[in-house]
Design a protein around this nucleic acid. Sequence first.
DNA 1: TTCACTACTGAACATCTTGTTCGATTATAT
DNA 2: ATATAATCGAACAAGATGTTCAGTAGTGAA
Lengths: 196, 196
Amino acid sequence: MDRRQQKTRDAIFAAFNGLLSEKRYSQITVQEIIDRANVGRSTFYAHFETKDELLRATCVDLFDHVVSDHLSKELTHDFSKSGGGADSTITHILYHLRDNRKNIACLFTSDSGELFMRYFKEYLTDVFRDKLGSEIFANREVPADFLLNHISCTFVETVNWWIRHDMTETPEEIERCFLAVIRPVLESDRTQEVMQ
Amino acid sequence: MDRRQQKTRDAIFAAFNGLLSEKRYSQITVQEIIDRANVGRSTFYAHFETKDELLRATCVDLFDHVVSDHLSKELTHDFSKSGGGADSTITHILYHLRDNRKNIACLFTSDSGELFMRYFKEYLTDVFRDKLGSEIFANREVPADFLLNHISCTFVETVNWWIRHDMTETPEEIERCFLAVIRPVLESDRTQEVMQ
DNA sequence: TTCACTACTGAACATCTTGTTCGATTATAT
DNA sequence: ATATAATCGAACAAGATGTTCAGTAGTGAA
C-alpha cells in the first residue's frame, strides 16, 4: 500500500481517537477530524464514505488487536467446567480490554456506545461461531443461533457493565461473572441429554 | 394540561410514528415531522429540545403501554420452576409486543435500534428491580446489579432476536427461549445454597 | 362574556454540516 | 526519469438546526 495512504489513514484514526476521548461521537464533525488529522476534505471522503464507517473501521481494528492473538486457540475449553481461570482465553481478552481501556471506554460510553456494541457483538458472534465447537450448539432446547447470539450479547453486556463500574473488578472476577451466567445454561441442557 | 398542548404533542407523536415506519430514524428531519404534524417550527422546539428526546418520549410511551397492564403483578413467579407458560406475565408482555409489532419493529431495526434498545433496557431494569423479589438477587455468586443487568439485557436481546426473525416464533416459544437461558442461572446458585 | 394567559404560527435568519467537484500539486514505485 | 496515484483546498449546492419575534387565536377562570 502506498505510504501516503497509510499515513493519511493513520492520521485520521489518531485524530478520531483523540477527539473521541474529548467529546461525544455525534458532536464530532468531519471538519474537526480533517483539521486535526491535517488532511484535505476530499482525502477524507476518499478513505471513508461516512463518519459511521470510520467508527466501524476503528472498532474492527481494535477488536482485531484485542482478540486476534487468541484466535488460534479453541475457546471451548473456557466454557467447560474444568476450564477458565487465570490462563483462559477469556481472561486474556479481558486483560487486553483493560489495557486498551482509554480507547475502549470512550467508545463504549457516550453516544457511539450503541454502535460500538453492535459492531462488537457482530464481531464476537463470528468469533464464537468459528471458535466454539459446533457440538456446543447441537441438540439444544433453544435454536443454535439464539444461543450463539445470547453468548456474544452476554459477553458484550458484561464488558459494558465492567466499564460502567470503571473496571474496578479484576479480569478474573469479570470472567467469573460471565461464566456464572453462561455455564449453567450450557450445563442445564447437558443434564437433559444425560437424562434422556 | 392545555388542550392545545395535548393536541400538538399527539400530532407530533403521530407524525413521528408514521415517518418511523417509512424511513430510518437518522433520515427523519425535524422539518418533515412538523410538516406532517402540521405544527410550527418553534412549537416543536417548545415541546422537545431535540429529536432524540422525542424518540425517548415515544419509547417511554410505548413501554408504558406494553408493560403497565402487568406491573401490578409480581414477576417472581415467572422465574420459578413452576411458573411461566401461557398465563405468565412475560408471555403477556410478549403478546403485547407482537400486537405493537408495526411500531416496535421499525424502532428496533434501522438506526434508531441502538437508542431504542438502550431505553428499553433502562426501562426494564427499573421494572425488574421493583418487581422481582429482592431475595432473588441476594446471596449470589455475582453482584446483584450485574445479575439484574444481565436479566434485562437478555430479555431485550431476546426480543431483538425475535424481531430479526420476523416474529415467526410464538410468544410462548420466545418465553421458553428466554427462560432457558435465565432459569439455569438462578437455579445454579440455589443449588449452591442447598449444598452449603 | 370578559379578560389575562398561554400556546401556536411562520417567516426570516445565522450558522453549521455534509458530500462533491476539479484543477493544481506532490509523493511513490519501478 | 516518468507514469501513476494520492492529496490538497477552495468553492459549491443542498439542506439541517435552533432561535427570534411580532402577530394570532384558543383556554380557563372570574
